[in-house]
Write a protein that binds this DNA or RNA. Structure first.
Length: 228
DNA sequence: ACGTGATCATAT
DNA sequence: ATATGATCACGT
């Protein structure tokens, strides 16, 4: 392949984006970092978003970009996903922050979750901690959109979780709610606070939460890809 | 071994 | 504090 000679512009279409992603498959993170003249950390403990940012660079996503999709002109969101030797996800996938107030009029159809997941370019990356970061390889990309069954599962979980949030039960929600979509903390630490609705309908301060896809869900979608 | 709750860096 | 990018690490 022709490696980065300069920062790529945003891809003009879906095919161009996908070809760029395919061209990265098989290379390891050390090769990509070196070619992009990016320093590679020893591990991800203090650089949790490093892999995602590196691939954004190679694919022409606007660095440190704004809310919503990574490729707004294409309606596509980019997600790197760490996998083990069997191709199974090692981590859940963050989708977006959960809105804890101001939810009147919000429905599944106009939700951030549905918008973010409408079309996703998944890029698997070897993620086992025993593999030195520089040696971890990029896998084959998958351009995905939820099928009817997947969308139904997502909608049911989203509606259950949002009902609890709107009814003032956010602090009763644990990661065990939801079959494929779960609500978990998304914060700098356990002392971070944001406004939410309390049990009596009053304003409260609580830990910011995010929606995450469970590993069983992303694992199934990757498996479907590799079995086709 | 694994999932849940906690956490890290950076930009605005 | 909120948004982006996620993974860490303790308890079971």
């Amino acid at each position: 392949m022709t490696f980065l000679s300069s920062l790529p512009l945003p891809p003009e279409n879906e095919q161009q984006l996908f070809e760029r992603a395919q061209a990265l498959a098989g290379f390891n993170l050390g090769e990509l970092a070196s070619r992009a003249q990016i320093a590679i950390p020893h591990d991800l403990k203090r650089d949790k978003g490093w892999v995602g940012m590196l691939l954004e660079l190679y694919l022409g996503a606007m660095a440190g970009s704004k809310p919503e999709q990574d490729f707004p002109a294409l309606g596509i969101e980019l997600k790197t996903i760490p996998i083990d030797a069997a191709g199974k996800p090692l981590e859940t996938t963050f989708v977006c922050v959960a809105p804890l107030t101001g939810n009147s009029g919000v429905t599944w159809a106009n939700s951030h979750v549905r918008h973010k997941l409408a079309r996703v370019l998944w890029i698997p990356v070897e993620g086992e901690r025993q593999i030195p970061l520089a040696q971890r390889r990029i896998g084959s990309p998958l351009l995905w959109q939820p099928n009817q069954q997947e969308e139904d599962m997502l909608r049911r979980d989203w509606e259950e979780l949002m009902d609890l949030i709107v009814l003032g039960h956010v602090e009763r929600i644990t990661a065990r709610h939801g079959e494929v979509l779960q609500l978990r903390p998304k914060a700098a630490n356990s002392k971070a606070l944001t406004e939410a609705i309390g049990e009596q309908g009053q304003p409260i301060l609580t830990l910011p939460r995010g929606f995450y896809l469970k590993k069983s869900f992303t694992g199934a979608l990757l498996a479907r890809h590799f079995s086709i």
